[in-house]
Design a protein around this nucleic acid. Structure first.
Length: 719
RNA sequence: GGCGGGAUAGCUCAGGUGGUUAGAGCGCAGGAUUCAUAACCCUGAGGUCCGGGGUUCAAUUCCCCGUCCCGCUACCA
């Protein structure tokens, strides 16, 4: 591919139901920020967009629980996330949000375009509707007799006895599992993206990415394509989201699928960005971060960044978002016929914390806003450690011990100390003035000397490092790029050590000038190289050296002779053992608070759970709920979520299958008091008949709790 | 369960389209030095490259089987 004319960089939209943690940063934002800063430094035409993803269920659930509105929840977290990014130094051009009018319009327009382009198939299906419950029934809410094998307890999507795939309307004698009534067929519409029709195009396009995309990204896409793409519903019967455009028949009560709306957020953020640029009124945009090339542009210019063939689009995401960014969203973009597809999607894997998966629900995380408060002015240290351990090709691990080691040794002892050495020596020898520039004569002179000053090699190394770093960034190998920079710093240390200017100053002051001149150029080049990686540090070095470089400079001489530099400062004070201990104590506390181990609640957006319709007392009294005690528990074969329980419900012992295996280990729940619905119709799960249901409470994070009546014998009635 | 990715030094990670001694940083041991944040520099010890089979003159690398970790997906009434 020829050099692109401009770049559009996106970073995954954080979900506005919680704060940011180090996993987010290591997964997408640091890499994206380095990439964007580097391109800006090179003077490229680049935009870097992001924003809060504010639709979806976790938000309404949280709102209900906190007795507030979804709006307040998203306002709160949007503000927290935005300010955390700002303080940390992720240099977006714009940080937008999906509840903004621009985004509603853009998303709805997309919906219209997709419709015009016949990318949808409207399944105006006859969907079963429960008149009592006043709601449409998803496949699993319907049971009936299997037309193929006669099993009376087949489900709307599948018969578990004969294994056939069914649709609800094929069932004989369908029954709503909510009310037990016979549901009626009612017409409802859903808009399905005909992904299957884009199979070939997407496959062909992806095939061209084989060599440039990461193995895990390409592999995952390939596996989806091999399985065959299926139409996917792009609408939902929900109430928090972007409404299906009202002119569509049957739009009422339907919203866009959150995964349709979210990536369009990249585009609406871009629109908003150029709107604000034209109006020179910056509500969401950060004009200080702008690449020179986007200043003074017009509102309509957003199109260049999404529709122009010579634009390179790159999505930075975590590995959990691969399929949507590499298949579904590209299919959507393709379907419009107007948009470009991503050049690369350099998804990172996950970062673990102290040996465990990062988990919001278990409070097992290093929260960015807390770090910023507890380690003020030390943003780059975190940036560095997350970068050094960035999970580029496999999962990685963050530990506080490693944080301390890396900050103290690599940043402090190698880099920070080196800069300070050079600056201090410059003050000692030359009162802070950069020594004489080497002339051609000097070069000859020193070349003839058999002195150990191998300064030419140093300048070669600087050039080489700059070249390598630039290349590595372009192929998204940020970790390695950073290592190259650290090696240059190491080389600087070695150069001083080998030449010992503090000794030579007494005997060969001219040689010392050369040594120091060379060393100062190394530090100046380090500051430039560090700009994309450790921007705050780069600024502080620039301040020490009294230089200001806005643009990448290919040459090696960045610091003119005679420049008066500023006095040294300590760039990276040591991280003390107590600070590490404090953080470990904090994590330990989280661990203690989690008395129920192994809660791996998914932090993805769960399906919305609407308030259920009112029922009568009669309805309620149909339920027979009793206390019980778990006697035995074991994992169900070939099912990750199911536990087979033997429960004493007073009058008998029952086998109950419950979907709690990801939350509880079998051995730790034996003897637990539980509440059981004992008159629920038996149902087979993975071949085991389950007679009844264990009641569980679920908090907003997805964590489960047993509903327990303490001190009561098994078999007591709950009413 | 299906699919994808991974497993390399005590720790955190690179790398290898098959070919003498598999790398880095940290940690550890020894030495040198004193300009600098007790920093820097040099030297050294340390690895059946997850296990088992196969292909090959040759496997850590390719193929098959297995184990464990992560993601997607199915199972959650």
């Amino acid at each position: 591919m020829s050099e692109p004319k401009r770049y559009t960089i996106t970073a995954a939209l954080p979900y506005a139901n919680g704060p940011l943690h180090i996993g987010h940063l290591a997964g997408a934002y640091i890499a994206a920020d380095i990439y964007a800063r580097f391109l800006r430094l090179k003077g490229e035409d680049v935009i870097f967009v992001c924003g809060s993803d504010e639709h979806g269920a976790a938000i309404t659930i949280k709102a209900k629980k906190e007795n507030t509105t979804p709006r307040e929840i998203v306002d709160k977290y949007h503000a927290l996330i935005r300010s955390s990014f700002e303080r940390f130094g992720i240099a977006f051009d714009i940080y937008h949000r999906t509840t903004e009018p621009v985004h509603y319009e853009t998303s709805q327009d997309f919906f219209r375009i997709l419709n015009d382009k016949k990318a949808f198939e409207v399944k105006e299906s006859e969907q079963y509707y429960d008149e009592d419950a006043k709601q449409f029934l998803a496949d699993r809410y319907i049971t009936g007799t299997c037309p193929k094998c006669g099993n009376e307890n087949a489900y709307g999507d599948q018969c578990e006895r004969c294994g056939s795939t069914l649709s609800p309307t094929e069932l004989i004698n369908p029954k709503s599992t909510i009310s037990g009534n016979k549901p009626v067929l009612k017409r409802t519409k859903h808009w399905f993206l005909k992904l299957n029709e884009y199979q070939e195009e997407i496959a062909k396009w992806l095939d061209t990415k084989k060599d440039t995309w990461k193995a895990h990204v390409f592999g995952q896409c390939k596996s989806w394509l091999d399985a065959g793409l299926q139409p996917r519903a792009m609408t939902r019967d929900l109430d928090w989201g972007i409404p299906v455009p009202p002119e569509f028949e049957g739009a009422k009560g339907k919203v866009l699928y959150v995964w349709l709306d979210a990536p369009i957020g990249y585009i609406s953020a871009t629109k908003q960005l150029f709107k604000e640029i034209e109006a020179t009124k910056f509500d969401f945009a950060y004009s200080n971060n702008f690449s020179n090339r986007i200043k003074n542009r017009k509102a309509d210019d957003w199109k260049d960044y999404w529709q122009s063939k010579d634009t390179q689009l790159v999505h930075f995401i975590g590995k959990d978002n691969i399929v949507f960014h590499c298949i579904t969203f590209p299919a959507i973009l393709k379907a419009t016929g107007e948009f470009i597809l991503p050049e690369n999607v350099p998804a990172n894997e996950f970062m673990n914390l102290e040996g465990d998966k990062i988990s919001t629900s278990r409070n097992w995380a290093v929260w960015l806003h807390e770090y910023l408060d507890e380690f003020p002015g030390r943003e780059d240290e975190l940036r560095y450690v997350l970068l050094a351990n960035m999970p580029e090709n496999r999962d990685s691990e963050f530990t506080w011990q490693d944080f301390q080691n890396r900050v103290n040794n690599e940043l402090g002892n190698n880099l920070g100390n080196y800069i300070k050495r050079v600056v201090d020596l410059t003050y000692r020898f030359y009162s802070g003035y950069v020594p004489t520039k080497i002339s051609a004569d000097d070069v000859l002179y020193f070349q003839k000397q058999a002195s150990p000053v191998k300064y030419i090699e140093i300048f070669d190394a600087i050039s080489e490092t700059k070249k390598k770093v630039a290349e590595l960034i372009k192929i998204f190998r940020f970790k390695e790029a950073m290592q190259q920079i650290m090696e240059l710093s190491s080389l600087g240390n070695r150069f001083l050590q080998e030449n010992e200017p503090w000794k030579l100053i007494k005997t060969d002051p001219e040689v010392v000038e050369l040594i120091m001149y060379t060393s100062l150029q190394i530090t100046a080049n380090l500051s430039m190289l560090l700009k994309p990686f450790l921007p705050r540090t780069a600024e502080r070095i620039e301040h020490m050296l009294n230089i200001k470089k806005e643009n990448w400079y290919e040459g090696n001489i960045l610091l003119a002779s005679g420049t008066k530099i500023n006095e040294s400062e300590i760039l990276f004070p040591k991280i003390e053992d107590e600070q590490v201990q404090q953080q470990l104590d904090k994590l330990n506390k989280s661990k203690m608070d989690n008395t129920t181990a192994g809660n791996d609640a998914t932090e993805n957006k769960p399906q919305i759970s609407d308030l259920k319709p009112e029922i009568t007392f009669d309805d309620f009294s149909k339920l027979d709920i009793r206390t019980g005690k778990i006697l035995e528990a074991e994992k169900v074969e070939k099912a990750d979520k199911l536990l087979k329980l033997l429960v004493d419900v007073g009058f008998e012992r029952r086998t109950i299958v419950s979907g709690i295996a990801e939350h509880f280990k079998p051995e730790e729940i034996i003897g637990k008091d539980v509440s059981v619905i004992v008159n629920l119709a038996p149902r087979k799960l993975k071949g085991i008949e389950s007679k009844g249901m264990i009641l569980m409470a679920e908090d907003e994070t997805g964590k489960l709790y047993f509903v327990q009546a303490s001190g009561v014998n098994a078999g007591s009635v709950i009413r």
